[in-house]
Simulated scan of single mutants.
Amino acid sequence: MSRSTIRINPNDSSPSDIFPKFATEGIDNGFQQPPPLRTRLICELIGTCLFVFFGAGCAVNSPDLLTVSAAHAIVTMWLVYVLGPVSGGHFNAGATIAFAVDGKMKIIEIIGYLLAQAIGALCAGGLLVWVFGTGTTLGTPGLHPGITVIQGFAIEFLCTTVLSFVIFFTTTYNSQKEAAFPIGLTVFSSFLLGAGRDGAALNPWRWLGPAVFSNTFRSTAWIYGVGPITGFLCGYGIFRLYKLIWNGRAGPYV
């Protein structure tokens, strides 16, 4: 059995494609076919750009923990709600790599998504320096005083592990539109926990865009790439284990 055909709900007969047909049954909305790859890549570029721009921009404007957390959560929710049905709403290298391991993406899609997201993050960095000018870190995440590298990595890893599990769990049961709210709440909780300690990125692109345009490169910056990616993979692994326990059968593709 292919991993791409596995469903957690044994009564679920819906298609397993993570890029569903955009046309709504019974409604003539003008979309007669599934979104082509070029459209999905544009959505990933725009979504990543807006996530980094609004999240980092709010961090520049206000150091208040609640405000920064709410900003990242809200932008996540409306991006997943609006663009999720088209591209899957990744906007995060960790999410794309986790879906790739899940066997639901072709090689060309994986490469295209990562490149589109990277370009989107850099576009966001350019917008940030245009709006806020030079002389600031443009909201680039960094370790706060007294926080060790191990602690910072642990925050990125643990928060993205939870986020990954929530993403896989909710999108298995629901559409991206329905999953947008719990995913956004998870982001909100994660930033409340981490933003005041390591700056919180939870996404390699959230660090990259502001870092490049503010020239903010530290020896500890690796945690904002390695932490989220390994966290997403761990969350996916936990979700797979959960499905094994649910189904009560042995084997790697149960």
Rank of each mutant, 00 (worst) to 15 (best):
G184K: 00
L192K: 13
L37E: 08
A59L: 00
A211S: 07
L202A: 08
G237Q: 03
Q151E: 03
K243M: 01
T140G: 13
S214I: 05
L163T: 07
L158R: 01
P35M: 10
T67A: 09
P36T: 13
P182Y: 01
G227H: 04
L138D: 01
G84Q: 06
Q176S: 14
G112W: 14
G84E: 09
G152E: 00
F132H: 06
R197D: 08
A200L: 05
I223Y: 14
A250P: 03
H90L: 08
D12H: 07
M77I: 15
G57L: 12
N92L: 03
A221M: 06
L79P: 02
L244F: 07
I18W: 06
E156C: 13
I183T: 04
S214L: 05
T230L: 09
A200M: 09
A98H: 02
I8L: 11
K243R: 01
N215Q: 12
T216Y: 05
A154G: 10
R38H: 11
A95D: 05
F217M: 05
K106V: 04
A98I: 01
P145Q: 14
A201M: 11
Y224V: 10
S2H: 09
M105H: 00
F157V: 05
P63T: 15
R7N: 15
Q32A: 14
E25N: 11
P63H: 12
G209S: 04
F191L: 02
